[in-house]
Amino acid sequence: MASQGTKRSYEQMETDGERQNATEIRASVGKMIDGIGRFYIQMCTELKLSDYEGRLIQNSLTIERMVLSAFDERRNKYLEEHPSAGKDPKKTGGPIYKRVDRKWMRELVLYDKEEIRRIWRQANNGDDATAGLTHMMIWHSNLNDTTYQRTRALVRTGMDPRMCSLMQGSTLPRRSGAAGAAVKGVGTMVMELIRMIKRGINDRNFWRGENGRKTRSAYERMCNILKGKFQTAAQRAMMDQVRESRNPGNAEIEDLIFLARSALILRGSVAHKSCLPACVYGPAVASGYDFEKEGYSLVGIDPFKLLQNSQVYSLIRPNENPAHKSQLVWMACNSAAFEDLRVLSFIRGTKVSPRGKLSTRGVQIASNENMDAMESSTLELRSRYWAIRTRSGGNTNQQRASAGQISVQPAFSVQRNLPFDKPTIMAAFTGNTEGRTSDMRAEIIRMMEGAKPEEMSFQGRGVFELSDERAANPIVPSFDMSNEGSYFFGDNAEEYDN
C-alpha cells in the first residue's frame, strides 16, 4: 500500500510504541512475548500442572481467558453494579484439565481477579502490559475465525453469508486497541457500523446529549479505520460520505453494504499476525530463551520457528480426527482463516481442507461434555516452508469459486491468482447506482469489472525454506488448481455463540 510509510507498523501498534527502528520493534515485541511466557509459567505453578498438562491447549485457553477477564475493567465495573446470582464479580476462573488415573478430569478453578492481575503485572515488570493482553485477544479471535462461520451475524446486519472472507476479527472485544483495529476485516468494521446506525434509528437519543457526542466521535473513528483499509480513492470518498452524514440511517447502511461487497474484489488491507497460545510461549521462556534479547516478529519467520520446536497437546472428542484438529489450530496460529487453501497447503506441506470436510468441533470443551471418553493427542503445528504475512489485500483475480465463501483475504505475501467468483459478486451490483453516491458507485463498479483474471497478485513473492531466515531465496510455489480455494466452501461450520 502506498501510504505504508505514514502508518505505524503493526509491531508498533502491538507494543504501543512511538516510531521505533526494526531492532527496537523486535525487542519490544519480544518483551511482550516474554511477559506472556513468564505469566503462563507462574500460572502453571499456581495450578500445580504437570509439564504435559501445561502444554494442553484447553488449559492455555482457560488461563488466557482468566487474565483477560481480570483486566476487563468495563465488564468488571458492570458486574459490580449489576450483581447477578451466583456470579462473584471479583473472581474469575474456568475449567482446568488434569490427568488422573490414566483419565482426563475437569476441575473448575476460581481465583481472585486481583490475584491474577498481581501475577500478570509481576510477570511483566510491574506494568499492565496491555500489548500482551491484546495479543491474547487476537489469538482467540484468530481461533474463532478458523472455527466458526459468522453466517447468522452477517444475515442479521443485512449482509450476504458468502462475504465471510471479510469477517476477520469479528469476535475481537471493543477494547483491543490499535492492534485489534489493524486485524479487523472490512466486513467486521461494516458490521460494527451498521449495528451502531441501527441503534440510532431505533433509539432517538442515541446521537443526542453528552453521551451522543461520545457516540458520534466513536462512529467517526470507526469510519476512519474502515476508510484506511480501502485502497481505492472511490471507496475512500464513499467512506467520507458515510462519516460526514448528519443523521446516519438506511442510506448509510446501503452504502456500507455496497462497500463491503466491493471489497470482495477491490480488497481492503487487513493486517495478519501470528499470535500463538500462551502454552507455546511459556515452555520456550522456561527453556531459557530470551525473546527480548533475541527479538521477535509476528509477521516473519519467528512464529514458524517457534511452532517448529513446540509440543502442544489437545483434548480430542471420541469421533474427532486429531489431524483435522491440528489443521484448525495451525490455521489459527498463522492467522489464515480466509487465505486461499492452495497457498496454505503449499506452505504447510500437507493438504489443507475446507472447514466442512474437517471432523472436528471447536477447541474448547463445553462444561456439560462427558470427560470419560476424552483422549488427548499432539497437535501437528509444523510447516514445510515459511512466508511473510501481508497486510495488503493483493490485486484481484477471477477463479472458480464456491457456493460458500466467494473470495479470499490473503494472509501471506505469496504470488498467486486470487480466487473470487466474479459473476456471483457482480450480480449483486445491478441497477442500484442512484442517489448521492452514484458517481462513486459507478466508478467502483467500473474498477471491479476491469479486474483481470490473468493478473498475478504479489508478483514474484515466494515462500522460503525454514533454514532461509533472511528470506534470501524465494520459492514461487505451484498450486494444484483442481483443489478448492475457499475454506468455508459450501460450508456447515458451527455458528459462533458468545
Results as ranks from 00 to 15, higher is better:
residue 295 G to H: 05
residue 194 I to A: 07
residue 267 R to Q: 10
residue 342 R to H: 06
residue 187 G to N: 00
residue 116 I to Y: 01
residue 82 H to Q: 15
residue 383 S to G: 12
residue 150 R to V: 01
residue 149 Q to H: 05
residue 393 G to E: 09
residue 290 D to R: 02
residue 350 T to S: 11
residue 161 P to R: 09
residue 254 E to W: 09
residue 83 P to R: 07
residue 354 P to K: 06
residue 227 K to D: 08
residue 259 L to Y: 01
residue 224 N to T: 11
residue 337 A to P: 10
residue 360 T to S: 12
residue 392 S to E: 05
residue 464 F to W: 00
residue 301 I to D: 04
residue 11 E to T: 06
residue 29 V to Y: 02
residue 294 E to S: 12
residue 341 L to T: 14
residue 168 Q to G: 04
residue 398 Q to P: 00
residue 198 K to M: 12
residue 358 L to W: 09
residue 379 L to E: 06
residue 314 S to A: 14
residue 64 E to K: 05
residue 57 I to P: 09
residue 275 C to G: 12
residue 122 Q to N: 08
residue 227 K to C: 09
residue 253 I to P: 00
residue 33 I to Y: 03
residue 247 N to K: 09
residue 474 P to K: 01
residue 213 R to V: 09
residue 226 L to K: 09
residue 351 K to W: 04
residue 475 I to P: 01
residue 349 G to Q: 12
residue 287 S to M: 09
residue 252 E to D: 09
residue 16 D to Y: 07
residue 492 N to M: 10
residue 288 G to Q: 09
residue 498 N to W: 01
residue 353 S to F: 09
residue 443 E to P: 02
residue 132 G to K: 03
residue 25 I to C: 00
residue 219 Y to A: 10
residue 174 R to N: 13
residue 204 R to I: 02
residue 144 N to Y: 06
residue 68 L to Q: 12
residue 463 V to C: 14
residue 128 D to C: 04
residue 32 M to K: 04
residue 198 K to G: 05
residue 195 R to F: 07
residue 167 M to T: 08
residue 450 G to T: 15
residue 118 R to A: 11
residue 455 E to W: 00
residue 371 M to L: 15
residue 144 N to W: 09
residue 43 M to W: 03
residue 51 D to Q: 14
residue 425 I to W: 01
residue 71 F to P: 12
residue 355 R to C: 10
residue 13 M to S: 02
residue 220 E to P: 03
residue 348 R to Q: 11
residue 364 Q to K: 05
residue 263 A to C: 14
residue 126 G to V: 09
residue 183 V to Q: 05
residue 59 N to Y: 01
residue 448 M to Q: 15
residue 53 E to S: 13
residue 300 G to R: 05
residue 171 T to F: 03
residue 223 C to V: 13
residue 276 L to G: 05
residue 168 Q to P: 12
residue 99 R to A: 08
residue 70 A to S: 15
residue 359 S to D: 00
residue 219 Y to D: 11
residue 184 K to G: 12
residue 382 R to I: 03
residue 388 I to E: 02
residue 363 V to E: 04
residue 338 F to C: 12
residue 293 K to T: 06
residue 91 K to V: 02
residue 5 G to Q: 00
residue 94 G to I: 12
residue 375 E to Q: 00
residue 48 K to A: 14
residue 310 S to E: 02
residue 447 M to L: 13
